[in-house]
């Protein structure tokens, strides 16, 4: 396992940094162009959620090798207000209706595996895995 890398999200500008690091790691890991673009988009969404709703947090990357497959784990962590109704934010059309972006359902679609944990008043962790095709 390679050492973990991460980007801190504090300002909007950091979203670009997070995308860049994610894309570089994905490229090195052997992801195709479309998947690189999808990974970057997922990272954008996660980083923007941190920036907009939690104020600050981190996006971290980890390369995973399991049963001959290679994957990228992206973890977004913040200690913001948390999400009171998880089912609601995972509903299509809920966050996107205001034209804000793909929202968490979008991140889920962009990933192969997706996990979301949130504790009100404590923070939110989103983890997604993308496997190299």
């Amino acid at each position: 396992m390679e050492p973990q890398s991460f980007v801190e999200i504090k300002e909007e500008w950091d979203i670009v940094g997070a995308r860049q690091m994610g894309r570089n790691i994905a490229k090195e890991a052997g992801f195709g162009t479309v998947d690189q673009a999808r990974i970057a988009t997922a990272i954008s969404e996660l980083a923007r959620n941190i920036y907009l709703y939690a104020g600050s947090g981190t996006i971290s990357y980890e390369i995973l090798e399991k049963m001959g497959r290679k994957g990228l784990i992206i973890t977004a962590t913040d200690s913001g207000p948390g999400i009171p109704d998880l089912s609601l934010v995972m509903e299509d059309g809920y966050t996107t209706s205001g034209g804000l972006g793909a929202g968490l359902p979008g991140v889920k679609r962009l990933s192969d595996e997706f996990d979301l944990r949130s504790e009100e008043g404590k923070g939110t962790t989103v983890q997604c895995i993308k496997w190299v095709r």
Binding site: T33, V34, A37, R38, A40, T41, D92, G93, T96, G101, A102, P105, G106, R109, L110
Partner: peptide
């Protein structure tokens, strides 16, 4: 390609809706 990713997501969302 980059500009099409979000369209792809929106398309999937409409499909689901």
């Amino acid at each position: 390609l980059e500009t099409m990713i979000a369209y792809g997501l929106a398309h999937q969302e409409y499909q689901n809706l």
